[in-house]
Design a binder for these strands. Structure first.
Lengths: 339, 339
DNA sequence: ATCGTTATCGGGAACGTTCCCAATTGGTGG
DNA sequence: CCACCAATTGGGAACGTTCCCGATAACGAT
């Protein structure tokens, strides 16, 4: 990649670099003939401006960092799709990192992205991140920051979420309406904001139906390997075993669906099933799965737009917003009524 | 992000930038006390070297570009996962672009990545790319290039593929062994190397079983919206309609599975079904889907390693390799025998 | 006392670009 | 004929690093 530079053009045409630079940017103070000469030569030699030199001078990279727990997760890959689309529309590049749900790796990678001078950072917390001081420090150093989905509650900036409380409420409400009374709630780490919100929606629905909340029906998952079977066993050893499962994340839906079937439980006869799930296969499953769908693409797109606004704003906005996109409840065979 | 620079340190400690630079790189010609002073001050002020300045000087960016048809596709998101892992291991960042299966956008984005000075490019062709001169030109300008999955046949460089011919042969062979005789082959654009290879594997299996090849059973898809129904209708209007479907890509499996079911065909009683598919839900479908699985993560990982080798090599290797990873055939309910 | 050596540091160019501040023309009005 | 202005161009600093060349001092050897 031995590239031609503005200097080469200047030398070849017996001009100064300033003149060439201005001609290329179509400045009014360059004569038409000179412009023509320069543009023609540049075209012929395949001149491409070096964005790195620009970055050094302007102290920005025209790229945004994206930090997600894992790429190979449907929700996140769809969100990244939205992010990439928004970034593309506005001429930015997307640099991707994953925390692998590890707090330590999140810290290291965020620092790495910052030192690479991304113009802003879009992120979704790892499930093991309780302390966000590394992000606060980043923000205090002036890095524009926008969170989506897995958001912290104690950092002030733009945030994009799906209506967690509302979605969970709708889901639990539906299960209760169809006669279920012992709804197991399988969810992520309790430290996450979305976990608490969804739990609250679940509780609200219980209250509406005068069903007491039972702590033992809630399982917080850390994605260990044997966790699924252990949790299912534990739940069905309860004096009042569950008659429905409500899973709170993409990553939990399939394993528990499969786990229940493997254990011989019939869905929905023995247990109803309803999960947060973003894959377009839910209606092809056996039985078709009832789901809460998050607008993953839109969330990524919106979050990226907010970040780019933040980056391109001359100064800090007077107020940060939290965008709350609504989820969609789709009822299928896995949550058919009891009676 | 007002960052502290080496100059700031030099000024603060009354040293020259050269000395500070050397102290930070732990050069032997700097006295221990000076080193200590510099390191301590740098630490205290959160000094982070500016990689952009480095990039400008060294003419490399410590990042690799990845160009895929679409991110929100399971095969590709898993491959990207592998790429990210390999890049992370060797201290590189990953910049992602998608062609959206568009030839024009592929050209523009590849050029954009190149002008951003990625150190190398990892790519999978768009299905509408027949002419690869834009990539040849890139390569001739010295850009290290590695292809995976959707590879061109007329560019010499490292390539990583799954055993396309072998995988397709196994799949078709299985369908033939279980009594199927009219196997529809739903595949991608005929220009792609993988399309031709898979078709060849399909033909080889037919020949082994002395079943004549019928062109009308092969459908090349361009992912238009009404294409699925149109193709299914056309296939079942044939004098000898298909008794099996063999789909050749992730993106085709689910739509045709759903399309067949929607049209009222029973799987596997009326038609057997077997597809290239990388999602871990295939056994939860109704009926469980028989699949050819590609080692997506490994392919991405291997491709990235080859690219990084290419980047870090002092000179061109004397031979390029094409890595052929084997696929896995998993038989489930959707391809149970006819009789 | 002179010289070479070693240890330690500074000056300044270079990477590719932009932009501020001149410098050089040609022409025009007084 | 000179001052002045507009049009066009050039010079050089700056962005943050690295690295090539020197520069300085101390010191032992001759």
């Amino acid at each position: 990649m031995d590239n031609i530079t503005i200097k080469d053009i200047a030398k070849a045409l017996n001009l100064s670099t300033s003149t060439v630079s201005r001609a290329l940017r179509d400045s009014y103070e360059i004569s038409p003939e000179t412009k023509r000469m320069v543009l023609e030569y540049a075209e012929r030699m395949h001149y491409r401006p070096n964005p790195i030199a620009l970055s050094l001078k302007e102290n920005r990279s025209q790229s945004i960092g994206v930090m997600v727990p894992e790429i190979a997760n449907n929700y996140f890959s769809q969100a990244i799709n939205g992010i990439e689309a928004a970034a593309y529309e506005r001429g930015y590049h997307v640099v991707i990192s994953q925390s692998q749900e590890s707090y330590e790796r999140e810290i290291a990678e965020v620092e790495h992205l910052a030192s690479r001078r991304v113009d802003g950072l879009l992120m979704s917390l790892s499930s093991h991140t309780a302390d966000v001081s590394h992000l606060k420090s980043l923000q205090s150093r002036g890095m524009p920051l926008v969170f989506f989905d897995r958001i912290p509650s104690d950092i002030e900036t733009h945030k994009v979420i799906a209506d967690n409380k509302g979605g969970a409420f709708e889901a639990a409400d539906h299960l209760l309406e169809t006669g279920r009374r012992s709804i197991a709630h399988i969810t992520s780490q309790p430290g996450l904001f979305i976990t608490r919100e969804r739990l609250q929606g679940y509780k609200d629905a219980l209250q509406k139906h005068n069903v007491p909340f039972r702590e033992e029906l809630v399982k917080y998952c850390s994605y260990a390997s044997d966790e699924v079977e252990r949790n299912i066993d534990a739940l069905f050893s309860l004096p009042q075993p569950p008659d429905a499962f409500f899973t709170a994340s993409d990553r939990l839906a399939l394993p528990y669906y499969a786990g229940l079937k493997k254990r011989g439980f019939r869905i929905p006869e023995d247990v109803a099933f309803l999960g947060y799930f973003n894959l377009n296969v839910s209606d092809l499953l056996d039985p078709p799965m009832s789901v809460v769908v998050q607008p993953a693409f839109e969330m990524g797109h919106k979050a990226a737009e907010l970040l780019l606004d933040l980056i391109e704003a001359k100064q800090k906005p007077d107020a940060y917003q939290t965008v709350n996109l609504s989820t969609k409840l789709i009822i299928r065979g896995s949550s058919l009524g009891k009676e």
